[in-house]
C-alpha cells in the first residue's frame, strides 16, 4: 500500500468512517462549490466612497506612503516625483501590465523603464495591484508577465498603482475578484497580499523595516 493510501486509511480508521458515505461526500462537495463567506467584519462592508479612506488609514498604519492621482496618465510624473524625493536614480523595473503601459511613461524622458522580472539590482519597481482590501490596508498582486513576483520583493522601493474602483472592502471581495478573472477554484501561480513594507521584529522584538523585501512601499491610488 502506498503512503498515500496508508495515511487515508489511518484517517478513516481514526474517524471511524469508510470514505464512501454519501452524506460526507455531499457535505464536502457542497462546501467546496458554495464556498460561503463567513463573518465579514462591519469595517469590511463599507460602501465604495468610505473604503478608500479606510484602506489608506491601515496602509499608512503599517508603514506605506500614499499618493492619489486623477488618472493613469498622472502615474509617470508621480513615480518621478517619488524617486526624486527618495533620492533614488530615475530608473524603475516594470512588467508588461496593460494599465501601466497605457500610462505613457515615455512622457518622462529622464525616467528609465526596464521591463521584465527583477534580477535583484533594481532600486525601485512598479506594479499594478489587481485589487486592495480596505479592512486591513492590504494590496492584492497577482503574478504573471504583467506583474512579475520578483518586482514585489527584490527592489528596495516598491511603487504600486491601484485603481480606486478596485479597492474592495474585504478579503472575500478580493477572492471573488480573482475567481471572476481566473475561474472558480483557479489561481495564478502566486497571489501576494501585501500590507506595508517588509519588516522584522526578530531581534529583541524591535520592529525594523526592510528585512528581505522592500524597505518602502508607495501606493498610488488612481482615480
Amino acid at each position: 500500500m502506498s503512503a498515500r493510501d496508508t495515511i487515508l486509511a489511518k484517517v478513516r480508521r481514526s474517524l471511524a468512517v469508510s470514505g464512501d458515505e454519501a452524506a460526507r461526500r455531499a457535505a464536502v462537495a457542497e462546501r467546496l462549490s458554495d464556498a460561503k463567506a463567513g463573518v465579514i467584519p462591519a469595517r469590511g462592508q463599507l460602501p465604495q466612497d468610505e473604503r478608500i479612506a479606510l484602506f489608506s488609514k491601515y496602509a499608512e498604519k503599517y508603514g506605506a506612503t500614499i499618493a492619489r492621482v486623477a488618472s493613469i496618465e498622472d502615474l509617470p510624473q508621480e513615480v518621478s516625483r517619488y524617486l526624486k524625493s527618495s533620492n533614488l536614480p530615475a530608473s524603475v523595473r516594470m512588467g508588461d501590465d496593460v494599465l501601466l503601459k497605457s500610462a505613457g511613461f515615455e512622457r518622462e524622458p529622464m525616467l528609465t523603464v526596464l521591463s521584465g522580472a527583477s534580477d535583484g539590482t533594481d532600486l525601485a519597481g512598479v506594479s499594478h495591484a489587481r485589487g486592495a482590501v480596505a479592512e486591513s490596508g492590504t494590496l492584492v498582486l497577482a503574478s504573471g508577465p504583467d506583474n512579475p513576483v520578483t518586482i514585489n520583493f527584490l527592489p528596495e522601493h516598491h511603487i504600486v498603482a491601484v485603481r480606486a474602483e478596485d479597492i474592495g472592502a474585504s478579503l472575500e471581495e478580493a477572492f471573488a475578484g480573482i475567481a471572476a478573472t481566473y475561474g472558480k477554484g483557479e489561481m495564478p501561480r502566486t497571489v501576494n497580499f501585501v500590507t506595508g513594507p517588509s519588516r522584522s521584529g526578530d531581534i529583541e522584538q524591535k520592529i525594523i523595516m526592510g528585512a528581505h523585501g522592500p524597505r518602502a512601499l508607495h501606493i498610488v491610488i488612481v482615480g
Partner: peptide
C-alpha cells in the same frame, strides 16, 4: 497586526 505583511498563495509551478 491586522494582517501580516505578506500573505502569499502559491498554486503549482
Amino acid at each position: 497586526q491586522d494582517m501580516s505583511v505578506y500573505t502569499t498563495f502559491s498554486t503549482g509551478p
